[in-house]
């Protein structure tokens, strides 16, 4: 059946790229479960148009992935984001053995950003695309991408500043 053929071809397409796509989806959503859900949704959209692609469908798939994420990835994203916010808002664990450095903290703080800002930052600093390329993927004007990236980084700096300020206290408690 045509469907089975498409699924077979999709399987071959994913053989080499699934891990990278999954990682992107996890960064966009903040968890493996939500990332897998997002990737599944994007793959289903890809299957709808599978016959259209003579060449590599990765560009379409990535655009779908990012646009779904930027749109808040459907309604259920709200609940997940709220949970993530609660998690991220909680102070870092006071476990002296836990080594939480700024790099890890930044990623957790990234999940507090609105979906559009997060999508732009992932495209810019994970995919390492230029502002023009990011704008092309999302179908937004370049200026919108620029301002979203700028606001996102600014917000991260603010959040990271707050996080850093808690560190000495924690260190003091440890001491």
């Amino acid at each position: 059946m045509a469907d089975d053929r498409a699924v077979g071809e999709l399987e071959r397409f994913l053989a080499e790229r699934a891990d990278r796509l999954m990682r992107t989806a996890v960064l966009l959503t903040g968890s493996r479960e939500a990332g897998q859900d997002l990737l599944q949704t994007a793959l289903e959209r890809l299957l709808r148009h599978w016959r259209r692609f003579d060449g590599d469908p990765e560009g379409y798939l990535r655009r779908t992935l990012y646009n779904l994420a930027a749109d808040g990835f459907r309604r259920q994203g709200r609940l997940q984001r709220k949970l993530l916010l609660l998690r991220a808002a909680a102070p870092p664990p006071a476990d002296p053995i836990a080594e939480v450095d700024l790099r890890d903290a930044l990623v957790r703080l990234l999940l507090q950003l609105p979906p559009r800002q997060r999508a732009v930052l992932v495209l810019r600093y994970w995919e390492q695309l230029t502002e023009a390329e990011t704008a092309a993927v999302l179908g937004w004007p370049e200026g919108t991408v620029k301002s979203a990236a700028s606001r996102g980084l600014q917000r991260l700096r603010e959040l990271a500043g707050g996080w850093q300020n808690t560190e000495p206290q924690l260190n003091g408690e440890r001491a």
């Binding site: 699924v7 994913l14 699934a18 999954m22 930044l106 990623v107 930052l121 992932v122 600093y125 990271a160």
Partner: peptide, 29 residues
Amino acid sequence: IEELLRDGMERFTAEVHAPGGLAGQAGRL
């Protein structure tokens, strides 16, 4: 901060691997 963010994202996803059966599940959806 951009560099730290990039490193952080690499570390955050280093152990992430796609589960099997993605294509089949997408077909069912």
